[in-house]
Amino acid sequence: MTAESKLGCRANYFWSMNSPIVECRSISKKYGEIPALVNFDIDISAGEVFGMIGPDGAGKTTLFRILSTLILPDSGRAMVLGHDVVKDYRYIRKSIGFMPGRFSLYQDLTVEENLKFYASVFGVKIRDNYHLIKDIYSPLEPFRSRRAGKLSGGMKQKLALSCALIHKPMLLILDEPTTGVDAVSRKEFWDHLGTLQTDGMTILVSTPYMDEAQRCGRLAMVQKGHLLDIGKPDEIRSRFNGTLFQLTSSDRYQALLICRNSKQISSVHAFGQTLHLTLADGVQTEFVENLLIDQGIVEVVIHEIPPSIEDCFMQYLT
């Protein structure tokens, strides 16, 4: 790897296309006594959309800050684009696009001024890379002279993404880009990420929303600095332990309480209008139906469903 860094930018780019874009080896980081990341290992290949899924305090932001050279790990080794995040931070900074948790826009600058500023910071002209951001930025064109602070959440998100993309980074790191944004903008945002991926961009993205997991090529489920599972969404779902059933009834809350008290039902969770449950060995769905009907609950329908990422996540937590 030391030999690589002597080859210069172009050679490195070529090299990194065939090797992991991100390589983490037992990264650990503590804030005071509180561990943020514990022995974290992750590999991300070129052209992937890699998702980090987990609640606040899982370590997503810490990992992203380490990878974007903003903070140093306490131990372990991380390579980004074939360069060490500690030693070669200059190279990495030039080559990645980073969008921190809160959309880091200058609220008092206009849409266009923000974009121009970030372009000039990286020493590029907007028109040179405009093709990259065209789809994302064009809806903002009519508002180019509006101050960023006056944009809606969805528009801020688009502008922040445009700013992170304008220097044509080799790796895009997005920290919770969809938090606090409306459902339509969230959907559009993931569509944009899909387009970028088709163009060959490697994307590392985090989200607290489990339902966005399916949009990632591969994902890591994280909790309290630990990696729970890693893989393609379908792989993770296939590792679900047991058979998952969905139950609808006349009184969801009452049904939930009854199921929770039954030893024959090993797990039960509310899921929107329904309940998701797994049964102890040898227990049939009829047992649950009868159990509920005996307690005066009607319209009980129970059938098997494929587990979602959220189901898998909860199985790891309980």
Binding site: R65, S68, L70, R93, K94, F98, P100, G101, L105, Y106
Partner: peptide, 13 residues
């Protein structure tokens, strides 16, 4: 506070 410094830091400046 705004978080813009993070992006400035993660730039070649």
């Amino acid at each position: 506070e705004l978080g813009t410094l993070e992006v400035i830091l993660v730039s070649p400046l």
